[in-house]
Design a protein around this nucleic acid. Structure first.
Lengths: 294, 294
DNA sequence: CCTGGAAATGCTCGATATGAGCATAAGGAG
DNA sequence: CTCCTTATGCTCATATCGAGCATTTCCAGG
């Protein structure tokens, strides 16, 4: 479950903020999707705006037990992020687990100080010259080093790279090694941090071609609030005027006629999501040079 | 398993071309993905170029049996499409099951003659005025009617719409109704046609932002062959010159130095895929107006 | 050898979309 | 009344996209 409140992307956690909510497979529902939705709503008393299947894991080395467990992970979006009845559950900023993913105030210092050196060491320790070159390139592409641009969608690839490099706490669990130079970021139980990385990556990709952000917004909002929600998810700052142009030209929103005055500056128009666009248009990234005529 | 041969998109089938290959869950592998890859290669003796998890189904009304079965569907791509050792397996054009998806020679006549009238009847039979309008709009968006543009990615939505309308053979199985005006296209067992639709949709979306077509191409190829493979998958014709421009400007291919002469016209340069691009770049659809400087 | 057909390849041109930034408006705090 | 802050409007250069013209280079057939 993901929410955005006050410009922070929040994720619902349990077990002292060290695990994602999970439940047993219930067979009372028509589909898995509806089962997940009902389960979350019952657990958190939040209406769930959007649910999407993420990935199914059944890897043998995933759990300590010999029995293979199949886990089907889901991404859910909700508007409200108040602590529910369950005291063990809490909302946490997802940057608590992935501090290197937040580039809203520029590249985090932790990347420079901790991650980049670890990546350099790792790249330099490859046996062959080609291997070193390949590792350096992979590190550069994933973390936006060596002149590569930062790509906010590579959340999972970055986490897996850090895992391979061995600076992720989860990577050394069960082995006799300890994490020599741990990367910043809280670990989670089992492979929950990997699942969360998958979810963040999916969401960051999705906001670009489907109007899912609105599932996280209150019924009416200013364009700055909308922008800040997108920035929270993408972990990047947006160009304000161009962001407005994008939203308005796509006719995703309409004015409510009301005005928000607590902006700190000039009052802002309040907008609401035009639900009709979901029916009018099919959102899909068009890129291929198709022919029009006969 | 999907392949492309001679400009036709092929899918590996079993059971007299009425089902997709499937197998039991094998626990000998490190991950599901590697298990699937090994299983397919063992069954078909084809090297599998690419494997991706599609979706996990566990819907109760999915099978006749009371026991709930979890099926994890995968999409695989391979270069070769020769009948393997298993005589029950065969490669079939996927348009055999979805004739309405092939717009390479314009909108298929079957859409006009069979599907559009059925959709009109269905839209007209909604109880309320708003419902009729909504249904008409949904039909228009999905099938490119009423001035809407055809969107080749909506494979699953179209199949599910036809299912709801009741013109799909699978929709009436088990009930006492028969399919009054069946839509064209061969049915499949269980929900395999739905899984295939999911796979086609995923592949059609993916070729736009990831260089997966090359998994289906021989080691060297002409740009026309490449274009025809994309056209086979997308079910649409491309603008030849713009297609080349797109491929070349992205530096996805490099010349082999050799020439193909059996083109029917001027000989064509042979190209090969630049595998290096997979490392150099991170492919992702960028759309958000991020800020560059400080 | 010459000609027409077919495909390959090169290039242009207008319409949009995108990135970046200037300028003005309209609140509140002091 | 002034400054600070955010909202909002607008411009401009550049990249990208859709469409189509033009030329090249092979083969087949007279």
């Amino acid at each position: 479950m993901v929410s955005v409140t006050g410009g922070e992307p929040l994720v619902l956690t349990i077990a002292g903020a060290r695990a994602l909510p999970s439940g047993p497979f219930e067979s009372g529902h028509r589909s898995l999707q509806s089962g997940v939705r009902a389960w979350v709503e019952q657990q958190t008393h939040h209406p769930v705006g959007y649910v999407e299947q993420l990935y199914t894991f059944a890897d043998r080395d995933r759990t300590e037990a010999a029995a293979r467990v199949i886990s089907i992970s889901y991404l859910g979006l909700t508007r409200q992020a108040r602590p529910g009845g369950d005291a063990a559950a809490s909302w946490q900023s997802w940057y608590r687990y992935f501090p290197w993913e937040d580039h809203r105030a520029g590249a985090p210092a932790a990347v420079e100080r901790l991650i980049a050196p670890a990546l350099r060491d790792w790249a330099g320790s490859a046996p062959s010259l080609g291997g070193r070159r390949e590792r350096r390139q992979r590190a550069g592409v994933n973390f936006g080093l060596d002149g590569h641009a930062w790509n906010e969608e590579l959340v999972l690839q970055r986490y897996e790279l850090l895992y391979e490099v061995g600076v992720v706490a989860e990577a050394t669990r069960g082995s006799d090694r300890t994490c020599a130079a741990p990367a910043p970021g809280e670990p989670m139980l089992h492979d929950h941090r990997r699942i969360l990385a998958t979810g963040i990556a999916r969401l960051r990709a999705k906001i670009k071609y489907r109007p899912v952000v609105f599932e996280l917004m209150p019924p009416s909002f200013t364009l700055l609030q909308l922008q800040q929600s997108v920035e929270a998810l993408a972990g990047q700052r947006m160009h304000k005027q161009n962001f407005r142009r994008l939203i308005e030209q796509q006719e995703l929103v309409e004015e409510t006629g009301r005005i928000a005055t607590e902006t700190g500056g000039r009052p802002a128009k309040l907008f609401r999501f035009r639900r009709a666009v979901q029916q009018e248009r099919a959102f899909a990234g068009t890129k291929l040079p198709v022919t029009r005529g006969p």
